[in-house]
């Protein structure tokens, strides 16, 4: 247990002392939510109620890319995991510490979004707090496990963005979070259903602001559980500590 918390704290320190990663996981998505709701706000329900949970979903996705895949590849290249392999620290403890740290960053992001939404725009949580907590944790896990897959696919630090950018850009535009799915061409609309972010954002929208759902909530949760299982299996196959 002691070593799990040691790893947890170490990752938290590295995160808190890296302003660029903080900006990507918290500040930018929040600014985007405000910005988009101001531009699109005159069109029926594309208001802050719509964009706040969407951008929380995107910030969880960026947690997977900028605070998971990227640092994992960097730390692998810096041979941090290799040095730790010569201590009694087990790989399981290392993994638990890392994942717990990232889930708590996800919860931190959600807290910041909800507080900012409440203070700035009077957004009150409409759904159940418990379901919102569940959606945040599941959403974070979807993208953290995806982060391990992306880190496994990236051979080097230089390759990491090449692997990660198309994935996250594609998800951002094709999930109906940035632009409403209804605005996408009919042929592309089917893809929306195949994208993890779609379900994460839908679950967050339903629990935060009771925006009309795309799917029943249980479908969102089932889909997130499915993605977590798939990404976990893939990362076991692809991810390398060294």
């Amino acid at each position: 247990m002691k070593s799990v918390w040691a790893i947890y704290r170490a990752n938290l320190r590295e995160y808190a002392r890296n302003p660029a990663v903080m900006a990507f996981t918290v500040v930018m998505p929040l600014l985007l939510a405000v910005f988009l709701s101001l531009i699109m706000g005159n069109q029926e329900f594309f208001t802050i109620d719509y964009y706040l949970p969407n951008m929380l979903g995107i910030s969880l996705m960026w947690l997977g890319v900028f605070a998971t895949a990227q640092p994992l590849v960097e730390q692998r290249e810096q041979k941090i995991f290799r040095r730790m392999a010569v201590t009694p620290l087990s790989r399981q403890s290392m993994l638990w510490g890392q994942v717990l740290f990232r889930v708590s960053v996800g919860l931190f992001q959600a807290a910041i979004f909800l507080v900012a939404g409440r203070i700035g725009f009077g957004v009150r949580v409409q759904g159940s707090w418990l379901l919102l907590l569940g959606a945040t944790v599941m959403g974070a896990l979807v993208f953290v496990t995806l982060g391990y897959v992306l880190a496994g696919l990236s051979r080097s630090q230089e390759a990491a963005p090449v692997v990660a950018q198309p994935v996250q850009m594609g998800m951002m535009f094709l999930s109906g979070t940035l632009l409403p799915a209804a605005m996408l061409p009919a042929g592309v609309r089917a893809v929306v259903r195949a994208i993890p972010l779609t379900y994460v954002a839908d679950a967050l929208r339903q629990t935060v602001s009771a925006v009309p759902p795309m799917f029943p909530l249980w479908v969102d949760f089932a889909a997130m559980a499915g993605w977590i299982a798939l990404f976990f299996a893939l990362s076991v196959k692809l991810f390398r500590w060294e």
Binding site: A10, R13, E14, R17, N18, Q75, Q78, K79, I80, F81, R82, R83, M84, V86, T87, P88
Partner: peptide, 16 residues
């Protein structure tokens, strides 16, 4: 691992 100490050619550390 509990009984030995090691300094590798590259010792990985957290930069921050």
């Amino acid at each position: 691992a509990s009984a030995i100490g090691a300094q590798l050619q590259t010792t990985g550390m957290y930069p921050a």
